[in-house]
């Protein structure tokens, strides 16, 4: 399937998160418009503005010279402040109009995956930068250190906790040989969703290192499986892999135990023998074995559950592991 189609599928899969972000940009643009509307510019004629706001029904009926001083468009903003807010407004409007393009990026051949993701998030993160700029302008605060032009780029290292909870999803096109997934770990915070559309030959289980209890990790060649990524509230990464790679989903919301969270649909038997670009064969084999051992423990836990009966109240992960170990050691009934 051509990669444009797969990108479209990836965007479709994260469309709820994307729409939420776009709506938030629109809402914020409207809020900033509200600020500009309430805070009259020093040189602005309030009557002219009121005439616009009230529309033709008021024309000839309402005396704007009398109304203007009454309904409080008196506050003024300095020219400089107003200009800054206006620029932030325009930045938000530009993002709103930009369409899907701001949610996608491509890693150049032999390029650095993390760098591309970081830059792409920095570009769409201008939404946060613009909102911050309004705050700074209104309260006459200088932008904190490390911020150059918040309306040009505002990368994830500058986002606060609340912003990371509302982070924009991103779809990244990458060649299999450049898919060094571990580098993405630090970006998987808040509600960050990353979808990787992987082209060409790829390692069999490159995302396995990202499996940690709170992160959704999906490796698949079936775009419909991406819905689990969109549905999870926390951070997550999914890769639309070429054929032959392992297929699994790790969804934190499914339960506390690894056996509940992890579902391995396909585990390749053949271990890779050749390096892919800078990714050594050894590393690829490591990843695959890690997934295999996880699969084994999940299966064991499942067996244990059937044996112990399903009516008992569910146990936490430690409890499950302990009873599994006891089971393995044949200590049951002691």
């Amino acid at each position: 399937m051509p990669s444009e189609d797969r990108i479209a599928q990836a965007l479709e899969a994260i469309s709820d998160t994307k729409d939420f972000f776009v709506s938030s940009v629109a809402m914020s643009a409207e809020e900033v418009r509200g600020v500009l509307e309430r805070e009259r510019g020093v040189n602005e004629n309030p009557q002219v503005r009121l005439a616009h706001e009230l529309g033709p029904f008021a024309a000839g009926r309402i005396d704007l010279e009398r109304l203007a001083p009454v309904i409080g468009v008196n506050e003024t903003l300095g020219e400089e402040t107003r200009r800054k807010i206006q620029s932030a407004f325009e930045a938000l409007m530009d993002l709103k109009k930009a369409g899907d393009e701001i949610f996608t990026a491509k890693v150049p051949l032999d390029g650095y995956l993390r760098g591309t993701v970081f830059a792409a998030l920095g570009r769409v993160g201008v939404a946060f930068g613009a909102a911050r700029s309004v705050e700074w302008a209104l309260h006459d605060i200088a932008p904190p250190e490390g911020v150059e032009d918040a309306l040009e780029r505002f990368p994830p290292n500058l986002w606060n906790r609340a912003e990371r909870g509302c982070s924009p999803p991103i779809v990244i096109e990458v060649e299999g040989q450049d898919l060094r997934a571990a580098s993405l770990g630090e970006l998987l915070e808040g509600s960050q969703k990353i979808v990787l559309v992987v082209n060409g030959p790829a390692a069999p289980a490159p995302l396995v290192r990202l499996i940690t209890p709170g992160v959704t990790v999906i490796q698949t060649d079936d775009p419909t499986q991406l819905s689990a990524l969109a549905a999870s509230p926390g951070p997550g990464v999914a890769a639309l892999m070429p054929e032959g790679a392992a297929k699994f989903t790790h969804v934190p919301g499914e339960g506390k135990g690894l056996n509940e969270r992890l579902n391995v649909e396909y585990l390749p038997e053949k271990e890779p023998k050749r390096a892919l670009g800078a990714i050594s064969a050894f590393q690829q084999v490591e990843e695959l074995r890690q997934l295999a051992s996880m699969t084994a423990s999940v299966e064991a836990m499942a067996t244990m559950e059937v044996e112990s009966g399903s009516g008992a109240p569910p146990m936490d992960e430690a409890g499950q592991l302990a009873s599994w170990l006891i089971h393995q050691a044949n200590f049951t009934g002691v």
Binding site: G34, H52, G55, P56
Partner: peptide, 16 residues
């Protein structure tokens, strides 16, 4: 036909 004016459209209220 009305000539539409964005100033007609209510902006969100002040939550500062």
């Amino acid at each position: 036909r009305p000539e539409l004016d964005p100033s007609w459209v209510a902006a969100p209220p002040d939550l500062s």
